[in-house]
Amino acid sequence: MAYVEKQDRGQLRVDVEECKGCGLCVEACPPKVIALGERLNHYGYRTAAYKGTGCTGCGICFMACPEPGAITVMRIVNRARSVEQCMVGASECASN
């Protein structure tokens, strides 16, 4: 499964309803994979957006963000296994 090898270690989700566009996450992100969007949301903020690739899952942006739920960082669980395998061998999976 070659595509697995190319997957990023982390992924970023931004709740555009909660984000206030302060830009602290943009500043904080070491690989600079976050940017403020071009468009204003309906509260008038240019919200943060993941560039789509390159996240390491370090979580710094989450800590730097002042909003409790604006940012969610996901980390890869297991590169080699599918979801089904994970559910079967849950304990083994968790140890990774």
Binding site: G59, T72, V73
Partner: peptide
């Protein structure tokens, strides 16, 4: 969908918040 499911939340909103 399976690929997304391979990620799990490492930094998300705390449960101590409403």
């Amino acid at each position: 969908s399976e690929m997304i499911a391979e990620y799990e939340v490492s930094h998300g909103k705390a449960k101590a918040f409403y």
